[in-house]
Write a protein that binds this DNA or RNA. Sequence first.
DNA 1: GGCGCAAATGCTACTATGTTGCAAAACCAC
DNA 2: GTGGTTTTGCAACATAGTAGCATTTGCGCC
Lengths: 144, 144
Amino acid sequence: MSDHTSLSPAESLIAARGGRMTRTRVAVLDVLLAAEQSLTHDEIGAALAEQGIKHDRVTLYRTLDWLVESGVAHKMAGEDRARRFGVATSGPHEHAHFHCDRCGKVVCLEGLQPAVAVNLPGGYQLDRAELVLHGACPTCGKGT
Amino acid sequence: MSDHTSLSPAESLIAARGGRMTRTRVAVLDVLLAAEQSLTHDEIGAALAEQGIKHDRVTLYRTLDWLVESGVAHKMAGEDRARRFGVATSGPHEHAHFHCDRCGKVVCLEGLQPAVAVNLPGGYQLDRAELVLHGACPTCGKGT
DNA sequence: GGCGCAAATGCTACTATGTTGCAAAACCAC
DNA sequence: GTGGTTTTGCAACATAGTAGCATTTGCGCC
């Protein structure tokens, strides 16, 4: 709303990828950018609904897929069978994730790639490593 | 079959956990012990069917759950939304996993826990770390 | 500003994975 | 063998994600 000459962060990201500027994409990206943790498809859907943005389950899946393919967002599987999405702020998603075992939230720990020095049994070709830390997040661990 | 005084490895494991010795449990554990990689519920079911062992999808889920609870097997989520199971030969599953991006197989790399020395942003309590290596397994990477 | 077309949406229906409740059967102790 | 508890098997349900297709919409082009 307001000034049509300046683009919101979400709009810039979409424009940079040469994609169409649709209501859903901007809204989804806004939600993702505002979130501090990775969100499930369901959580994003709820956020859109709160903003009164009409959408379909399927459209959301496709929008999310497009964002991942465009390199704007990244997708990951959790312990439950729900995929979570987050914005991929920097380069490839070569960063660690923190999974809170109490509230189930997943946070991206950018720029925290540890030195993974494992020596694989012969024959294995390492492409990339994914590190998931388990424990309690600041909020959940407070009352310990 | 054969000698009832000697127990198979699978039978010993079940007996050690104080569980009942049922057809399904022994068969499932046999499959798991024979497998070099983590198997999905579906793959295990297929293996049982090949052996002519009558079973139910639900029973298999429950058997697998029991094995996990008993500490005999361990469960993990993959990129797809299917959980994979493997035998937990040693202690807690503090080991790394190798995921082949070509054939989708997941192999347990026992005794390969790397030094995960990340400094978490204040407030986070680390419980355990899970490392997943992505790349090509010996079989798939051979023809490169 | 209007036109046309490809891309995106929204619908319905479907697949896959996993769970729950309950009656029947199997396991094991006696 | 008998009894009691655990497991099994069935059917129905729940959840996450996918497929096909008609309609709408963003956007380049005139």
